[in-house]
Write a protein that binds this DNA or RNA. Structure first.
Length: 577
DNA sequence: GCCGTTTTCGGCCCGACTGTTTTCAGTCG
């Protein structure tokens, strides 16, 4: 699939045009197309073959022909033309915070700056500061920006960002002594990774809160501190992370929350819609001329635009505004819809919880069941179970279940999908289990698509575990065609996992929506290994909601009995729930 | 570059902060 490749080419064209000072809206069109391609689950080559590229909003004749050109030849003349005369090192400079395309273009034209080393030199010798419109302060800030860039500004995992935000908010609330303080931005949208942490406040003593933030002992550097806004860099691990704080009056809180939750694409479209209605939307409210029509609550803002409230997780401009206008928004899955956990480990393999401890924690979540899915024998690094040990675990589960009221542990396994596509336990062993997750844990580059499809054909396999295999902290996923695997799941009546581990969130939002559209059920598992595991369902749920999933799309909204019926319907087996 | 129940041309979201300026450009979100 060439979607991401082409997105990267468009993005590069946008950067080049930006440095050259081309019209902003042309650049915007390339950037928008890059984002759309990046998030699209459907193969752009298929769209091109069907002559449907122009059906995608944001892609017109011009971009469509460039995509076709790239698919045919592997090149794009426009990209070469745009980058002509620009040293490759210039593009790196755009990553320096506080340094934009205009300044990069100026430094290149006036001083021949072609990369980071040149930039450091012209800052050191004062020639950058001497340019028109520049100055000592600007040069100094750019130098600090280079330092920040080199410290690493990789995005935080959603779970990490949530933890930091909670800490900051608690700190600010102490100083505020009342009022509303909430996280906004991509964190509120539950994106899988988070850049900056955005916090919105509506409090009496704003000065005290700004002071609490800028004076906090984890703050390394104050980037800006005005009357209504402050930005700081705080220490996180070995790196730094930006926290933005905004103040608004209480009667603008809803408008500001809407505005700072984003996404940018969602807001741009919303404002366009407002304009068509003769309204103006900003972070203070919805206005008709001078008159303020809404602002205190977020629901009022959407209502003023003729829309129902749109859940933050949907706000990515992936069709949610159109659906809201038609009154056809999905009813997203909620925490209370979840009846059990489908993926947990115990001390029998690489977990840190004993069976009884796991059962207690899962009961405390309000569930009716949890499936213990320890590793199979080939996963030696994880202490995978032999058939004999699995049988012994089953006896232990039976004994425990006899003592538990209103809750059961389901006998399961996370069985390895071996390099030849068979699974790690023979069929008679699997036949005695309540739930079977099949996962790839080795030979990531070897025929993963075919192996998963073969595993799905095994009558005892219920679900493919963490299907892409990616780790958000850095590991590329398997070499796998998820569209084909999801199609195979549909044919066999099987489920795909949404693994809630903060480093996985796998399937991702885009593929979840694809699975939903195909009618393939999603099982949300936490992959619990320790005591902090069960609560991670929160991040799985956020991702599920980003994938537009409703209660009926998710397997573990069924009761234990319902889950057994789902399996029996497929297999024709009779198994007591 | 895209796009059109007012438009095939002329729009394209809006504001805060900073540093450089005597009124605004650049960057960011």
């Amino acid at each position: 699939m060439k979607n991401r490749e082409i997105a990267a080419v468009f993005s590069r064209i946008a950067d080049a045009l930006d440095i050259k000072g081309e019209p902003a809206f042309k650049i915007l069109a390339y950037r928008r197309a890059a984002r759309i391609l990046d998030e699209m689950a459907e193969d752009v080559a298929v769209l091109a073959a069907d002559n449907r590229l122009c059906d995608v909003e944001g892609i017109g004749d011009g971009l469509a022909s460039k995509i076709v050109e790239y698919l045919k030849t592997g090149r794009m003349a426009k990209a070469d033309e745009a980058a002509k005369g620009l040293p490759a090192g210039l593009f790196d400079l755009l990553n320096v915070p506080g340094l934009g395309a205009k300044t990069v273009g100026l430094a290149f034209k006036a001083l021949g700056v072609a990369g980071l080393d040149d930039l450091r030199r012209v800052i050191a010798d004062g020639s950058l500061a001497a340019l028109k419109g520049m100055g000592e302060k600007k040069a100094e800030n750019i130098l600090k920006g280079i330092g920040t860039l080199e410290k690493g500004r990789e995005r935080l995992l959603l779970g990490e960002a949530a933890e930091i935000a909670e800490e900051v908010i608690a700190e600010l609330k102490r100083a505020a002594g009342g009022g509303r303080i909430e996280a906004a931005g991509s964190l509120r949208r539950m994106r899988e990774t988070i850049g900056d942490i955005d916090i919105l406040a509506s409090v009496r003593n704003g000065e005290a809160v700004i002071g609490a933030l800028t004076g906090w002992n984890r703050v390394r550097r104050v980037l800006a501190a005005g009357d209504t806004k402050a930005s700081v860099l705080i220490e996180v691990g070995n790196g730094e992370r930006q926290v933005d704080l905004r103040f608004v009056e209480p009667d603008s809180f809803g408008a500001a929350l809407q505005y700072f939750t984003g996404s940018k694409a969602h807001n741009v479209k919303l404002r366009g819609l407002a304009k068509d209605l003769g309204l103006k939307v900003n972070e203070y409210g919805v206005f008709r001329g001078e008159r303020k029509a809404a602002g205190r609550e977020e629901t009022d803002v959407y209502k003023a635009l003729g829309l129902p409230w749109i859940p933050p997780e949907l706000r990515e401009d992936r069709g949610e505004i159109e659906r809201a206008r038609e009154g056809r928004l999905p009813t997203l899955i909620e925490r209370d819809d979840i009846r059990g956990d489908l993926h947990c480990h115990t001390t029998a393999s690489d977990g840190r919880l004993k069976l009884a401890e796991l059962a207690d924690l899962m009961r405390a979540m309000g569930y009716g069941y949890a499936a213990v899915c320890d590793h199979s024998r080939s996963a030696r690094y994880a202490g995978g179970l032999t058939p004999e040990r699995l049988k012994a675990q089953g006896a232990e589960i039976d004994a425990l279940n006899r003592k538990l009221k209103g809750f059961r542990i389901l006998k399961g396994t996370e069985v390895d999908i071996l390099p030849d596509g068979t699974v790690d336990f023979p069929e008679p062993v699997l036949a005695g289990l309540d739930f079977v997750v099949a996962s790839v844990h080795s030979s990531f580059k070897r025929d993963v698509t075919a192996r998963m499809i073969k595993a799905l054909a095994n009558p005892h396999v219920d679900m493919i575990g963490h299907p892409s295999g990616r780790l958000l902290s850095g590991r590329e996923g398997y070499d796998v065609d998820l569209e084909k695997v999801i199609e195979a799941a549909r044919i066999h009546g099987k489920a795909m996992e949404l693994n809630s581990h903060i480093d996985r969130l796998d399937l991702d939002d885009v593929h979840l929506r694809l699975a939903k559209d195909k009618g393939v059920p999603i099982g949300i598992g936490t992959d619990t290994h320790g005591a902090d595991g069960p609560a991670m369902i929160r991040f799985g749920l956020g991702t599920a909601r980003r994938g537009w999933l409703e209660k009926t799309d998710v397997l573990n909204t069924l009761s234990a009995a319902g889950l057994a019926r789902w399996r029996n319907k497929r297999t024709g087996e009779k198994r007591r729930p």
